[in-house]
């Protein structure tokens, strides 16, 4: 029993395959513009697909020339803009789904009240959507999406455009309400992936480049892109006598790893990698990788210095002295777990 989707939309260069087992949460991880929203909207039935199959628990929604209408799919979509109905009260917004599925007015309102309570929005029932803060609106939208008991729920960046406090609260709420729900959560944020995912699929330019359980994909990514989405940098090489040997010959001692001669890698958080200019510092516990600066990426409090083999997060003051094309040394911690690629 699962949600299986192959979404093919040529005009948007999307060709993505996804599977979510019943009751699990798949995080669809990708940058803005990678096609996450399009994939979700296609599964929900809002965006038509050119071809491909979408089936939920064995019931085909598209494929073989048929297309199940929106209302019969039983797949709820939580869009980035919440899209609450402005002409209805919060309670009526949440009751809309159950009522549309055939509940009586009383039953629907009862269900809606129960859901408002679950998302901690009971006191908002009589308000209009325009009177809600961003976090409140998101809570109501979550309740509305789940109230008709959909067979799957698709959440498009459910933590975007919220302040830090609201995002933290909504993240905790989602961990709670998505526990036994078949869900796909699209996000570009590694924290959300770690917090919400049972499984992770990484999407790059409309194509799923990597998929697996959360621990597999987030801690042992097999592509540079997946590593970046998991807030890590992937350092590749070949196993040789307890060390990862990089293309330029640098030996990085590692723990474990596949047999000698096999392609392997370590996924390192860039904050753990040191950066040195000039001579190799004599610091124990680090292997120094000679590299050339490819790009400087400002990331809030720090600047990520990208080389071709590794990357490091450094202080902006330090980064200001580094120029693209310069030779640098990345100090990679030794003893990290290596895995086959």
């Amino acid at each position: 029993m699962s949600l299986d989707a192959h979404v093919l939309i040529r005009s948007r260069a999307v060709d993505a395959r996804l599977t979510v087992e019943r009751g699990r949460t798949l995080v669809l991880l990708g940058t803005n513009g990678a096609g996450k929203s399009t994939v979700l909207e296609a599964i929900a039935g809002i965006v038509p697909v050119d071809s491909g199959e979408i089936a939920i628990h064995g019931r085909a929604l598209t494929g073989g020339g048929r297309r199940v209408p929106l209302a019969s799919r039983r797949i709820a979509l939580l869009s980035q803009d919440d899209a609450l109905f402005p002409t209805m009260s919060v309670l009526d917004n949440v009751a809309f789904g159950p009522r549309s599925r055939g509940s009586s007015r009383e039953e629907a309102r009862h269900t809606a009240r129960a859901w408002l309570e679950r998302v901690g929005a009971t006191d908002l029932a009589a308000r209009r959507p325009t009177e809600l803060s961003g976090g409140q609106a998101r809570r109501v939208a979550i309740a509305r999406a789940l109230a008709p008991a959909p067979e799957a729920v698709l959440l498009d960046e459910p933590l975007a455009r919220l302040d830090v406090e609201a995002a933290t609260a909504i993240r905790a709420l989602l961990q709670h309400v998505l526990r036994d729900v078949t869900a796909i959560v699209a996000t570009h944020d590694a924290l959300d992936a770690h917090a919400l995912a049972d499984d992770v699929a990484v999407i790059e330019a409309g194509v799923v480049v990597e998929a697996g359980t959360a621990s597999e994909v987030l801690t042992r990514p097999r592509t540079a892109f997946a590593a970046r989405m998991a807030a890590r940098v992937l350092i590749r090489g070949t196993m040789q006598g307890g060390a990862l040997v990089l293309v330029n010959g640098t030996r990085v001692p590692v723990a474990g790893g596949p047999r000698a001669g096999a392609a392997a890698g370590i996924a390192v958080r860039p904050t753990l990698i040191a950066l040195a200019l000039g001579d190799e510092p004599r610091v124990p516990g680090r292997a120094w990788v000679t590299d050339t600066v490819v790009a400087l990426e400002p990331r809030g409090d720090e600047v990520r210095v990208h080389g071709s083999a590794a990357a490091a997060d450094v202080d902006p003051a330090e980064a200001s002295r580094i120029i693209v094309g310069e030779r640098v040394l990345f100090g990679v911690p030794t003893g990290l777990p290596a895995y086959a690629i």
Partner: peptide, 19 residues
């Protein structure tokens, strides 16, 4: 957008029109 969301919530076209 609202109409599409209403559809995913199970509303028929007539219901979407009137509500």
């Amino acid at each position: 957008r609202h109409e599409a969301v209403a559809g995913t919530l199970g509303a028929s076209r007539t219901r979407i029109l009137f509500r």
